[in-house]
Amino acid sequence: MNNNVDMSVDFGGLKLAGPVFTASGTCGYADELGDFMDLGCLGGFITKSITVEPRKGNPTPRIVETDSGMLNAIGLANIGLDNFIEEKLPILGGMSCAVFVNIAGKSAEEYIEVARRLCGFEQIAGFELNISCPNVKKGGIAFGTDPVQVAEITKKVKKAGGGKKLMVKLSPNVTDISATARAAVEAGADALSLINTFMAMVIDIESGKPVLANRTGGLSGPAIKPIAVYMVNKVYNEVTKGTGVPILGSGGIRTGSDAVEFMMAGASAVAVGTASFIEPASCEKIAAGIEDYCSKKGIDSLKKLTGSLC
């Protein structure tokens, strides 16, 4: 550890101990990762998507590997709001980092219901609004591709969530991600999270059918990283710069240097997803990598890294 780098992050008014988050849906409810790393390395933890009712999720195959990436179509499988409150919130209460609960639903009412029921719990720092899941028939991405709907649902959930921070997770499956980003910020989002996965398909040419039971899935992993960096930079320049609304950058981050790219592009913090499947201690290694970089370059505060792209 180097003591000369201030690794803390001001994340839309929330003081984080570090810049690395777990990405939603890739780290369960936190109890799975403790065997592999010190959870104290995290700046934030984002839960799997929670819906009002439990969801079974999609049939298998739910994943398929691609060149330098993978497709998933889990289908928002989760234990449902009641079970989450009973079984998982106590575990999350023991975490030292900021806990964000990812919210999903089929209708605006369902999103509001989750936010309303959870807003009284102290152990939750905020919500991540999932309006970008490509793997469910209703809700999800349908809300996230139209700026008018993005603004509407952001406003409603912000109101229902009491004083909790609201982070909106944006879909890259749009013509202009700045348009949805702007809609979320103008509607009161405290932070933006980008990007979610890209809609994609892999075909089994022997059977002539898609590999995934859901036919399509979301592409993640190193394959999408350069596009994600570009989108973070675009949103930073066109929407959030100077507004104080931080960006949580994600998409294929595997190493400290990947994370530094996102921060230079405009991210205040980064989320790690697919990399945790391969290396469960990824978050810890990435945090150390960022610190190393800053130390070598004489950067004494992460603030100076965000948006430093020449």
Partner: peptide
């Protein structure tokens, strides 16, 4: 099953199981 992580993170390796005698199934 196809597995990405093997440790319960990714939820990929679902196995459809009977939910008691309810006639319903769970993964």
């Amino acid at each position: 099953r196809r597995m990405a992580c093997g440790i319960g993170l990714c939820q990929s390796c679902a196995v459809e199981c009977k939910a008691g005698d309810s006639g319903q199934s769970i993964y």
